[in-house]
């Protein structure tokens, strides 16, 4: 299965017909609050999909369902052809190695150095021998590509917000995932740093030949990076299309997002 995938991923090329992520009829409620209500989404290989929505519209819940941090009440999720809902914990761990996740607040382990942070995902990854055997090299290259090679032995508390985000990005990429999920990658950052991060994301998309899902409510970010924008309103896939399509829409709900 995995080898078949690797064959598909010719360097630099994309296969726009191969779905990497399929979500069908996803439901999730907290008490009487229906956060996700029949949410559907299909993502193809090499695509950058930006999911936009208001705070509390269920974006974070949706991505947490994607990586198995939350169990949806009902619905189907298939990532890289594998069923995410009925999966054993061992298989889930394997699948997670193919998903890079950049958390909202960077989520660096603050009791560990940058190096240990980057090494952490490589623990218990015996199936990725080529990575775990050259850990030192893998860590430095990962850090190098986000431009922070000098921070190797610093503690997270010694880094600025933007640096933390970049270290977190390096950590998310360390297992060379096929699918990257960015949860609010620019939240809490100043506009200039935000732009740097967005450029970095674009660069990574090209060099690593991944597919990306970006959760944000930052319209600028969406405009720069998105191949496709999905509007998540009332727990539903309200509308989707390119930035230009959606920005030109007459729908009141959509307009609310794009008026600047």
């Amino acid at each position: 299965m995995k080898t078949a995938d690797t064959e598909h991923r010719t360097p630099g090329g994309t296969d726009r017909r191969r779905p990497v992520l399929e979500i069908k009829g996803l439901n999730k409620a907290f008490g009487s609050n229906k956060v996700l209500n029949d949410f559907n989404l299909t993502m193809y290989h090499g695509e950058i999909v930006v999911v936009m929505g208001r705070s509390g519209s269920g974006k974070s819940v949706m991505v947490k369902c994607l990586v198995g941090l939350m169990k949806p009440d009902s619905g189907e999720i298939s990532i890289l052809g594998r069923d995410m809902i009925n999966i054993s914990s061992g298989e889930l761990d394997e699948l997670r190695a193919d998903i890079g996740f950049l958390f909202q607040g960077s989520a660096l382990y603050d009791s560990m150095t940058v190096r240990q942070n980057l090494e952490f995902p490589l623990r218990h990854r015996k199936e990725r021998k080529e990575l775990t055997e050259n850990m030192e090299e893998v860590v430095t290259t990962a850090l190098d590509q986000v431009g922070l090679a000098h921070t190797l032995d610093l503690m997270p508390e010694e880094l600025s917000g933007g640096m933390k985000r970049r270290v977190a990005l390096a950590r998310a990429l360390i297992l060379k995932p096929e699918l990257m999920i960015y949860d609010e990658p620019t939240s809490g950052l100043d506009p200039i740093t935000s732009k740097e991060i967005i450029q970095l994301m674009k660069h990574i998309q090209q060099t690593h030949n991944t597919s990306s899902m970006v959760i944000t409510h930052d319209v600028d970010c969406a405009r720069v990076i998105a191949d496709r924008i999905v509007l998540l309103i009332n727990g539903r896939n309200y509308a989707q299309g390119s930035y230009e399509d959606l920005a030109a829409s007459e729908d009141e709900e959509i307009k609310a997002f794009f008026k600047t």
């Binding site: 198995g68 941090l69 958390f103």
Partner: peptide, 8 residues
């Protein structure tokens, strides 16, 4: 969550 996602 980050730990869980990174397979630990």
């Amino acid at each position: 969550d980050a730990m869980e996602v990174s397979g630990t």
